[in-house]
Design a binder for these strands. Sequence first.
DNA 1: TGCATTTCTTAGAATTATTCTAAACTGCTT
DNA 2: AAGCAGTTTAGAATAATTCTAAGAAATGCA
Lengths: 137, 137
Amino acid sequence: MSSANPDPDFAVRLRKAGLRPTRQRVALARVLFEGDHRHVTAESLHAEAKATKISVSLATVYNALNQFRDAGLLREVVVAPGRSYFDTNTGHHHHFFVETDNELHDFPSDAVTVEGVPAPPEGTKVSRVDVIVRVRR
Amino acid sequence: MSSANPDPDFAVRLRKAGLRPTRQRVALARVLFEGDHRHVTAESLHAEAKATKISVSLATVYNALNQFRDAGLLREVVVAPGRSYFDTNTGHHHHFFVETDNELHDFPSDAVTVEGVPAPPEGTKVSRVDVIVRVRR
DNA sequence: TGCATTTCTTAGAATTATTCTAAACTGCTT
DNA sequence: AAGCAGTTTAGAATAATTCTAAGAAATGCA
């Protein structure tokens, strides 16, 4: 047992998502999905990745984030102009956004109810409802 | 009555907001606030403004939008990465965002209730709750 | 296993959105 | 009318992201 094979989980996970498990994708997946849920930007993930043995170019980080998002492994959260956050928590939940220090926190949507939303525009279908609670210190 | 004086309303409005009513600010204010509520981006407003007699530089459009927002005349809505929308409706309301064609529609918040939001993070205070209903065609 | 095919990765250029800079200009007060 | 502070402007600068072309690396198959 033990640390015989290093990361079959991530490789499998990527393959299931239709992505070839390349070194850099697996390395990024490990950084992203190993521990608790987290929020990253391309820059922040790139910085972390550089600390890894496998170095990854910024372009690849962007590619991977977009692919992971398209594959449903990540969720993109748009809260501040000019910066994209990616959330490893793809389940139903909403966000607190601390405007004073650009920090994002999840909260489960279980308890949250949004009522009274009118019918969507003609010919459209709801894909998701985002609730962003903006707070400041 | 009639078209005797062209835009005292906008000048007054700007002055009340602590902004000097310059030609370009008044011209932009007219475009923004004359008719119904609307959503603009810096680019779209600039394009419209060029159609006016008073031509305005893009930098000024950015300046004005930011100042108008800071003065509470506009509200900034963040829905898509890499693009800022400004909403002339500063009252309580929420948005439909048509992802397939980057279109934004307001809906009043009167009827909408968001319940079950947990207490905000330690030491923070809620400044606003945004509900964004993402739809696609 | 060995090679061909296809898909990735990468550095750097290119693009897009936005802000900055320094000089010219304008609205307001006197 | 003159002066000054606040504005506008063109173009440079910055920041975030995407594109490009060429070299790797993963996969499929003989």
